[in-house]
Design a binder for these strands. Structure first.
Lengths: 190, 190
DNA sequence: GTCTATAGACAGATAGAC
DNA sequence: GTCTATCTGTCTATAGAC
């Protein structure tokens, strides 16, 4: 099979994204120079601008793709059962998805303020859409969602797993998810 | 009454701290130039170095004072009652303290990675000490604290209030605290 | 598509006048 | 104690050779 022209460029592009992801997560967007991303990829800084118009777009693209994948993945696994079943499913989905993508999740919470106002509005809209998924499920479960306190408390608790979960820890992935399922069920009953 | 010599310097110092607090919270440590802090205070950039050896010390001092005050304030109000009473008291204390100091709390979570390794270890130690306060109370309430999941889940839920609470919102401070008290009680029973 | 070289802006921190 | 002026280094992004 003949290679397409320009296929070489499509080898570097994902490396740039991966390096930006890793370094932004580790050191923070503002603290990572383009030169360091380039060094991580194994090219000179100027070459990066073949793949991104600027540093800001690199950040925005990582967060935008993440939010699109998050919303799409939920639509994919979203079950039809009872409200409580759907709540359990949401908790398991959220925990597993966030454990699998620790770096981009971390960036998406930490680097919001380094987005331009236009880019921020896009991401904020998608974040609100995801929050609405949980809010609707909670409402169907009989929770009062006039104020967002319960929704935000549950979301904060679930997302907190991102700050401490590391692969190979004391608890397995499924065990962790089931513990959170139990805690959220308990909050809903109260 | 005669003014003490040097009393004028002690007027600018708190202004520098206040400006750094406000700007670090709004734009992030890395994005705030010393010149902007100076402009906020109403002096030239060079004058700031009468009050701090460098920018890093400005950040560290804000976080360090915050953690000292947090630990001291808890020791002050810590009650003697039953474990469940002490848990309620901790929840109320945490929520109110975090609502009253939104900016420095936000900085303390967001800017950890902009501390030098030495400074990070100091703050991290104090953060662990605070976490231990909650862990001990939960253990006395009969919660299994062999793994830290419950402790961290409760702390994440409580601290989440910082991301959405604004003065003059739908719910009053006390009402919010009592809702969290109810949710935490429920998690402990399960 | 990657390189070298550099433009142009701006950072943290210091020196010395007043 | 604050000023002006500046040193020294680093940043993003671009230009043009190969």
């Amino acid at each position: 099979m003949a290679r397409k022209l320009g296929s070489r460029s499509e080898k570097t592009r994902p490396l740039v994204r991966a390096a930006a992801l890793r370094l932004f997560a580790r050191d923070g967007y503002a603290a990572v120079p383009m030169r360091q991303i380039a060094a991580d990829v194994g090219v000179q800084a100027g070459a990066l601008y073949r793949y991104t118009p600027d540093k800001q777009s690199l950040l925005f693209e990582l967060m935008h793709v993440h939010m699109e994948e998050l919303l799409a993945a939920w639509r994919e696994v979203m079950p039809d059962g009872s409200p409580l079943d759907r709540l359990d499913a949401f908790v398991r989905f959220h925990i597993h998805h966030h454990m699998d993508r620790a770096e981009v999740v971390f960036i998406s919470y930490m680097e919001l303020r380094n987005l331009t106002p236009e880019n921020f509005m896009v991401i904020e809209g998608m974040r609100a859409e995801y929050e609405k998924v949980l809010e609707d499920i909670l409402a169907e479960c009989g929770v009062d969602t006039d104020d967002k306190l319960t929704t935000l408390a549950v979301l904060a608790m679930l997302t907190g797993v991102n700050t401490w979960y590391r692969e190979g820890g004391l608890l397995g992935r499924t065990a962790i998810a089931e513990r959170y399922v139990g805690m959220v069920r308990c909050l809903v009953k109260a």
